[in-house]
């Protein structure tokens, strides 16, 4: 009888928690949607503002965006001014009091240190974000820190699920750590490779892998480079024998192809995010870099 009662209670409790389990998580970028699914699994419902090929700087206003933020219990974004052009308006328009500040609002960039923070001196050189480079999702170690912060936040918002989230975090970190070691050994030859980048979208990835960006095609996104700047890059690529020019879909391939044609280097398109899985994102990044390095150097 006691056992039966125990089972019944468990069933009732678990169905109850399933029925009202879902914490609605609204993420700005697809990489955070993937992370939220890893940690929250069945206890969260995740929606995301932009798809993997879209530029996180710019978002078109669709009715479903406002609706999704209205229903959200947690808004999970990069921060560091990346979404400054649209997220504040979206939050205001949603008029959802739960997500205007912590704990309902979580910025990944606040959980880690950022590189390329601009002081007054290098601001003149055209740094884009004063708070630092926001594209930190391409450093797996920073992902680890964000995953921990997200777990704490979910546990705050949904105390009943605390053990559940922690268990998923432990599981995720185990697989993630193993994957990092795999990627690092696969990419060991990439160390000290010099590349040209379109914009500083890949700084964290390059830092992690020990690669170096020697020039940027478009230091200010959206503005055409000056002739002098292009001339300098071209001569640098030729003189230093650089083989790879990295860009991502929303940069447009024009600049990279222009440089590739004139210098004989390879224009390489890299994925920038992946909504399904962070593991596949990194798998793809490493595979492309390793294989292109073989072809182009």
């Amino acid at each position: 009888m006691k056992i039966l009662k125990f089972f019944l209670t468990t069933i009732v409790l678990s169905t109850a928690s399933l029925a009202n389990a879902a914490i609605n998580v609204f993420t700005c970028e697809p990489e955070w949607a993937a992370l939220a699914r890893e940690i929250g699994a069945d206890r969260v419902r995740v929606s995301t503002a932009i798809s993997a090929d879209q530029d996180p700087h710019q978002v078109q206003a669709r009715p479903s965006l406002i609706s999704a933020v209205r229903q959200a219990d947690l808004v999970f974004c990069t921060g560091a001014e990346l979404e400054v052009g649209w997220l504040p308006v979206l939050l205001a328009r949603s008029a959802n009091p739960r997500v205007q500040s912590a704990p309902g609002l979580l910025y990944a960039a606040d959980q880690v240190s950022l590189i390329e923070q601009s002081s007054s001196t290098d601001r003149a050189h055209g740094d884009v974000h004063a708070a630092g480079n926001p594209h930190m999702h391409l450093d797996p170690h920073r992902i680890t820190m964000v995953a921990k912060a997200l777990t704490e936040r979910l546990a705050t918002l949904d105390p009943q699920g605390k053990a559940y989230y922690h268990q998923h975090l432990v599981d995720f970190l185990q697989r993630w750590q193993a994957a990092i070691e795999k990627w690092e050994s696969r990419a060991s030859h990439l160390k000290d490779t010099e590349v040209v980048v379109h914009h500083r979208s890949f700084s964290y990835l390059l830092n992690w892998l020990g690669m170096r960006a020697v020039a940027e095609m478009e230091p200010k996104p959206g503005l055409p480079p000056t002739p002098k700047h292009l001339g300098e890059i071209l001569s640098k690529v030729e003189k230093e024998n650089i083989g790879l020019i990295l860009f991502t879909s929303f940069n447009g391939s024009q600049g990279a192809n222009w440089l590739a044609k004139r210098s004989g280097a390879c224009a390489v398109q890299l994925p920038f995010s992946n909504e399904k899985s962070l593991f596949s994102l990194y798998d793809e990044l490493i595979e492309i870099l390793v294989s292109k390095q073989g072809e182009c150097l």
Partner: peptide, 15 residues
């Protein structure tokens, strides 16, 4: 730069 230029002419009626 790019963001200013874009924003100046792209009011969005939903927001």
């Amino acid at each position: 730069a790019g963001e200013y230029l874009h924003q100046a002419l792209s009011g969005q009626i939903l927001w």
